[in-house]
Simulated scan of single mutants.
Amino acid sequence: MRIGIIGCGVISRQYLASFDELPDVQLVAVADLDPARAEAAAEGREGVRVLSVDELLADPEVDTVLNLTIPAAHADVDLRAIAGGKNVYSEKPFAVTTEEGAGVLAAAQKAGVLTGSAPDTVLGTGTQTARVAIDVGEIGTPIAAVATMVTPGHERWHPQPDFYYVPGGGPLLDMGPYYIHSLVTLLGPIAEVIGAGSRLRTERTIGSGPREGEIIPVTTETHVTGVLVHESGALTTLIMSFDGVATSAHPIEVHGTTGTLAVPDPNRFDGDVEVKRLGGEDWETLPVAGGYQGVARGIGLQDMAVRGEALRASGELGQHVLEVMNAVLESARNGTRVEVASTVARPEAVELQDVRVTA
Rank of each mutant, 00 (worst) to 15 (best):
M1H: 10
M1G: 09
G4M: 01
Q14V: 04
Y15A: 01
E21I: 02
L22N: 02
D24E: 11
Q26C: 06
L27T: 01
A42Q: 01
G47E: 03
G47P: 03
V53N: 01
D54F: 00
L56F: 06
P60T: 05
V62W: 02
D63K: 07
T64S: 05
N67C: 14
A73V: 05
A81I: 05
I82T: 06
F94M: 11
T97P: 05
T98Q: 11
A102N: 07
V104H: 00
A106G: 03
A107H: 04
L114I: 12
G116K: 04
D120I: 03
T125I: 09
G126P: 11
T127G: 07
Q128M: 13
A130R: 02
A133K: 02
A133N: 05
I139R: 12
I139F: 12
I143L: 15
A144C: 14
A145C: 14
T148V: 15
W157H: 11
D162W: 13
Y164K: 08
G168N: 11
G168W: 12
G168R: 10
G169V: 15
P171F: 02
P171Q: 00
L173W: 05
G176S: 06
G176W: 02
P177E: 04
P177S: 08
Y178D: 06
H181Q: 05
I190F: 10
A191Y: 06
V193R: 03
G195Q: 05
A196H: 09
T202M: 00
R204S: 07
G207K: 04
S208C: 13
G209K: 11
T219Q: 00
H223E: 10
G226H: 06
S232G: 09
S232Q: 11
T237F: 15
V254P: 02
T257K: 15
R268Q: 13
V273F: 06
V275K: 00
G280E: 01
D282I: 01
W283T: 01
T285W: 10
Y292S: 05
Y292N: 04
Q293L: 07
A296S: 10
R297I: 05
R307M: 15
E309H: 14
L311N: 14
A313H: 10
G315L: 09
H320R: 12
V324N: 08
M325L: 09
S331R: 01
G335M: 08
E339A: 12
A345V: 15
R346N: 11
P347W: 00
R356K: 13
T358N: 13
